[in-house]
Design a protein around this nucleic acid. Structure first.
Lengths: 160, 160
DNA sequence: TATTGTTATACTCTATAACTATA
DNA sequence: TATAGTTATAGAGTATAACAATA
């Protein structure tokens, strides 16, 4: 018996996109309870870890710097964060998380983790960790970065 | 020793979205060689299987019927398909694939399969089929459909 | 009254360019 | 000259509503 060739997987792309979209929808609905969007939550968490500028946060959250502006606007309006001048670079703004924002972020992270855990819990125990490990391997390896493309495809820049 | 709790997976949503985006980019670049977009390819293949109306194809390709109009426009312009009146419903149009379109679709499917196979080939053999099976299980099961949501999240309706 | 296909339009999000103030 | 943040705008793609023809 020879090794069976890898079975062709139909619609792999569609499955990734579908799963991502459903999860974004769930995160959006669940995080609304604490006044956050997935994007705000992502930025808030990274801003909480250490002093970071908008540019640094944009990089971590995979956002354009222009998108970061409106995200920080929303965080300020919600009272969850404040722009403060950097002590070392007068061009840059440190995003300081308020106590209220820190509480929201903590609750938000529990929500995010729960949504993700619930999703993976649909897999039988032996497959669960292997699936997560394989997905991580793909995303960090072969699927790490897109090819350059004349007509760049529409993108969903949504993490969590 | 008790069972270890499922490790929290960071950024599961982000990984799905990222993988989907990278694959769309690759498909878009690769399919351009045969004059197809991923969306055209998807519609063409389903139209080839049997006589189908635009609405039926829209359902299969997960497209809005208005998006289907422009997709079929593109297919006609490329000479890959034609709108023909349905024999049984004078409102409906059957999308008939031309011989040229059939050849393009066949080449396109090989391209799609190759891109997907290459992606999965990045996983070690024992994990490959298990990963595909788990992803399918998630998408058909727990992540089958999004929750209803006040502010519906932006969507990438891209299959293949 | 409901459905197919079409058109037009609004809306959301991304991408780009230009500008300021600093470095 | 380059970078951080901002603003404005263009661009791609989705969603919605309205319409004509037909069921």
């Amino acid at each position: 018996m020879t090794n069976a060739p890898t079975r062709t997987v139909r619609d792999l792309t569609g499955m990734f996109n579908h799963a991502g979209h459903v999860l974004i929808t769930r995160l959006t609905a669940a995080l609304a309870d604490v006044g956050l969007t997935p994007r705000m939550q992502c930025v808030l968490i990274h801003a909480l870890e250490q002093e970071r500028t908008q540019i640094q946060l944009a990089e971590l959250a995979d956002l354009d710097k222009t998108t970061m502006v409106s995200t920080v606007d929303a965080l300020e309006e919600a009272g969850y964060a404040e722009r403060r001048p950097s002590a070392t670079d007068r061009r840059a703004r440190i995003i300081a998380v308020t106590p209220t924002g820190a509480r929201a972020a903590a609750e938000g992270q529990q929500i995010v983790d729960r949504v993700h855990r619930d999703a993976l819990a649909a897999l039988p125990e032996p497959a669960r960790d292997a699936f997560a490990a394989a997905l991580t391997m793909l995303v960090e390896g072969h699927l790490a970065k897109p090819v350059e493309c004349d007509r760049p495809a529409r993108r969903v820049r949504q993490k969590s």
